[in-house]
Design a protein around this nucleic acid. Structure first.
Lengths: 335, 335
DNA sequence: ATCATGAACTTAAACGATTTCGTAACCGAT
DNA sequence: ATCGGTTACGAAATCGTTTAAGTTCATGAT
């Protein structure tokens, strides 16, 4: 391994000078610096992140917290896209990404301790139980963090605009003439709360009443739960004309039940999803859904976090709401 | 931050003794060690991975190479499952996971240099272009590596048993009476080669001839390519009775075309997929497919890599072939 | 009484970089 | 000739840990 000392010896300068040349400091002669860099390149030098981190306290490494309750955070396109894009952006800005977890090996480290252990400069938190004391401890620590789809006081967060998303969907189906709208919602999370609130409010604003039995608990990314909920809706005397699913994937479960019941989409029942995953546009009929801009969210999370890391003093936490867009498929019939 | 020195001072011993107590070395008294550990716990000490790595040369960190050509390595359930399970296993064994890439920041590092820069103890390579010189450089370096679904000489690899998988699928549809079997295959990769070879061989063994026009190039995870290929098959005078898709997701494209052509599955056309992703069992009819054991593969990759890292001398590269299992859905008709 | 042995510690030198401070040399201005 | 100000560089400390190589002291063998 080529070190600063090797280059220093070859160039007949001190290690300090080599360091300065490599890092482009000002107090080093133009030609000397160039000569040192050239030699370094010839010798196949690249810095050692570990040594650099130890001395400088900065690791150029951001941690990612990605542990959801269902043990499948990565499997969902929404989250894998966020991860992928956060990764690209972080890399572009010169940062690496390491997964943060707890109980690494046999040590009983919590998230915060783990992040410190690896000297992460910051942490992106997504797809976790935000009520978890270990998460709260991390968020309240001195380590810069960015949360996705959850807002903590005095911390930067990137949230998908669930209020606007739900509003647009409701207004869209309203414009298509629907008045009896059912909503199968996901498990109780802050995202769900926001969507539910927006659903009720928009309906109220439009002057449509929603029967209590039209709103049923399902689960995110769980077609089986969606299937059960759909069946309940079909058993009602006064059926809805349109069903909102918690997400695109759940919709698959509903689709099966509808087909089984001999109902065609959208002629006998209209439906909408949420997420805008790839699959939703591959199915026939194409699903009408609200596409969240996961790619932008991931990029923005990395960008904001790194800004915070690099300008800690003049940093003010901000809450960034990311709009998505309604994708008009063919699953909502004009009544 | 609590350091070894702080504990040493408090306990009136040297830093070396603290280090030995923490790491459970033998040349330290039983009670002293216990006392030191107790104090360390009280003081909220946890080690600094950076300093440890710098001195010991071992980072307890494994790199993951996950850059596929289509820029969506993570989005596929197969790969995200591998990553997820590799991550869990690595964590269980006391290792962290960092993404390896090239061109981090503005430095022109290649994969090998990046891995050295972060002092990764080893690298898991999945979902990349294995012909890429940068990948080959990494694989031929002194860094332990494990590759997934690709075999390098003198390197450990974990490969899904594509030969057996394809053989079982062919035998299954044969047993159902099918003789005219079409195969829409993915782009040219070593996986494709192995599946194709197995497809042809099994057919030959069973005494069925395959018309050249029954074998068409599609793409992995691309329903559109599958749709086009399916249409071509339907245009043939002598249509196949069963279509093999490159993977479960591609099948969606074929499904649409078949439905559009008024053909029902499996009554008018039988189909099989490959992968066994969650979605395939949610669709109706359930897809007959071959489920790859991605979870086991990821775990095994981590396990093997870490074995190699920890016992470098007595390490012999091994090629581990992971069998999957045929999932019998309802998309193949008994003729 | 002497010496080898081993257990239990300590000392001190790393690991590879960064960074503060110091200084030598040179410039132009007085 | 002297002074202040740059510029370009070097010396040395430092980050937190590990580890080879002592040192001390009690123990048991001779």
């Amino acid at each position: 391994m080529v070190t600063l000392a090797d280059i220093a010896k070859r160039c007949n300068v001190s290690r300090a000078s080599v360091s300065k040349a490599i890092n482009g400091h000002s107090d080093i002669g133009k030609e000397t610096a160039e000569f040192i860099r050239k030699t370094a390149r010839e010798m196949g030098y690249y810095p050692n992140a570990t040594a650099r981190t130890l001395k400088s306290g900065r690791s150029q490494n951001v941690g990612v917290l990605f542990v959801d309750k269902t043990q499948s955070g990565l499997a969902h396109e929404y989250f894998s896209k966020i991860l992928e894009s956060a990764k690209s952006m972080a890399e572009k800005l010169g940062y690496d990404i390491t997964f943060i977890s707890r109980d690494i090996g046999t040590t009983g480290m919590d998230f915060y301790e783990h992040a410190k252990y690896r000297q992460c400069d910051g942490v992106i938190i997504a797809s976790v139980d935000f009520e978890d004391p270990a998460v709260i401890k991390l968020v309240n620590s001195e380590i810069p963090t960015v949360t996705l789809d959850y807002v903590f006081n005095n911390r930067t967060s990137i949230v998908s605009d669930n209020v606007k998303g739900m509003e647009e969907l409701v207004k869209y189906v309203y414009s298509k003439g629907h008045r009896k709208i059912a909503y199968i919602h996901g498990e109780e999370t802050s995202v769900t709360q926001r969507r539910m609130a927006s659903f009720y409010k928009t309906c109220a604003d439009l002057g449509i009443g929603i029967k209590p039995e039209y709103v049923i608990r399902g689960d995110y990314h769980d077609p089986k739960a969606a299937a059960i909920a759909t069946r309940k809706l079909l058993e009602l005397n006064d059926r809805p004309t349109c069903i909102f699913y918690p997400d695109d994937f759940s919709y698959i479960g509903g689709m099966n039940i509808l087909e089984q019941a001999g109902l065609s989409i959208p002629d006998d029942m209209s439906v909408v999803g949420y997420d805008g995953i790839h699959l939703s546009q591959m199915l026939r009929p194409k699903l009408t859904t609200y596409q969240q801009d996961a790619t932008f969210m991931g990029e923005e999370a990395a960008r904001q976090l790194i800004e915070n890391i690099e300008h800690p003093t003049l940093w003010l936490p901000r809450q960034i709401t990311v709009p998505g867009k309604l994708i008009e498929g063919s699953t909502v019939k004009q009544l």
